[in-house]
Computed example of a mutant assay.
Amino acid sequence: MFESIIKFMADIFNYFYVFMRDSMGISDVGLGYVLAIFAFTVAIRLLILPLNIKAAISTRGMQKIQPEVKKLQEKYKDDKEKLSTETMKLYKEKNVSMTGGCLPSLLPLPILMALYYVFMRIEGIDGASFLWIKDLFAPDAYHILPILAALSTYIPSYLMTKATPAQPGGMNMGSMNLMMAGMMGFMSWNFKSILVLYWIIGNLIQTVQTYFLNYKPAIKEIDSRKEKEAQVESEKFVMAVEEPKNLASKKKKNK
């Protein structure tokens, strides 16, 4: 099964490369491979875009019920088990999934592993260089790509963390994001450069998607909620100020 997946992905990648070389007239071998991996990555990201949109909708749903979640946290602050049960019940009632955003972020990993074996079988490519990378089918001698891989892994996960409400008793996502970014940077140290390019390009696309689908709407929702809360507090303050005046006015009339 895994062998069939590798062959399928190899055929798709080769199709993109042949298209760049023959139809687009790209004579530079390295540039042809880079454009092929770019086209391949865009195709993969377009395929999982519906899942990203679904995950974003789920995240926005979590944002909308945050006031109710906070009430539960206050009510059951001394009973973690009850808090967890009631929170899950609330999510179910509101049709919100806690794991809705996980699948799109996990899908590129098995594709990365499959591509690892695809590129492992491509040997003896002469002249496959690009910018500072002397050999696209060897690790980056200057170790620039591993650093970019770590950074590009961290940024979209950071944006997603900011856009996703914290779960009661949940893990520290900041530490998880740093650990994941560090792991990808470490792994990329010995990966073939073209494989690391796939990961970086995918992460850049994911960053744009996360910003517009998750982060920006979440920040807008938070600002809107804060504005409403401020308005309520302002109305309470006005009422508190006006109430003594009204009482004094009534006393004068009674006299």
Rank of each mutant, 00 (worst) to 15 (best):
M88K: 13
Y117E: 03
K64V: 06
A240F: 08
I44S: 00
P104L: 10
S105G: 08
Y142G: 03
D78M: 11
R121E: 08
F186Q: 08
G127N: 13
T41L: 08
I201N: 04
N254P: 01
K89F: 03
K226M: 11
F19W: 14
V18N: 03
V29W: 03
F130R: 02
K92M: 05
S157Y: 06
L145W: 04
E68V: 02
L35A: 12
G100K: 10
T164N: 13
G170K: 07
I122L: 06
M173R: 15
V69G: 07
M176H: 03
M183I: 12
E86V: 09
K251S: 09
P104R: 09
V34S: 02
Y211K: 09
V196E: 00
A150Q: 03
Q73V: 01
F2Y: 13
M113K: 08
I111F: 15
G100Q: 09
R21T: 10
A128P: 08
L46C: 13
P165L: 10
L112G: 09
A163W: 12
V208Q: 03
L145F: 07
K255I: 12
Q63Y: 03
G170R: 06
L178Y: 07
K253S: 12
E93N: 11
G100N: 09
K228L: 13
K220E: 15
I125S: 06
M183C: 09
S249H: 09
K75L: 09
S234Y: 14
A128Y: 06
V18P: 00
D135M: 03
L51N: 00
L49K: 07
T99Y: 13
S188W: 07
